[in-house]
Amino acid sequence: MPPKSRHTQTSPPSSSTPARPAPSSSSSSKASSSSALDAQDIVLSVWNKYLEKTPQRVKLLDSFMGFLAVVGVLQFVYCCLVGNFPFNAFLSGFSATVGQFVLTASLRIQTNPENKAEFESISTERAFADFVFGSLLLHFFCVNFIN
């Protein structure tokens, strides 16, 4: 979950600059009365804003990245608890998840409408094709490496 929450925190400020001062001012004014309720309010509003403003494809990307993060953390925790006996298996399993996460993150950067100005030359279809090619390559290597 951390990546998702990180994204939810980073993307709204970048998407809407006026949104930021509103929650912060409200938190400072109501800090004395009930901070817990206040924090909950902030999170809720951020979440609502995210649901409201984010395009559906970016939401899809975020949920996929969240899924990858969960799988990756599970593998890493298992490795720490049980040991890394077939080390190449651990490496390929874990790096498949991490690599997929990185590729997805770059797809998210390239296809996010907010970054349109920076990636003028790269169309969404082109970015997606790159992503599919890169992912297939990654899966091929990982399956080979685990033997």
């Binding site: 593998q75 077939p86 998840t97």
Partner: peptide
């Protein structure tokens, strides 16, 4: 290795 195969 089954865990990591599953991971992939």
């Amino acid at each position: 290795a089954w865990v990591w195969i599953a991971g992939i």
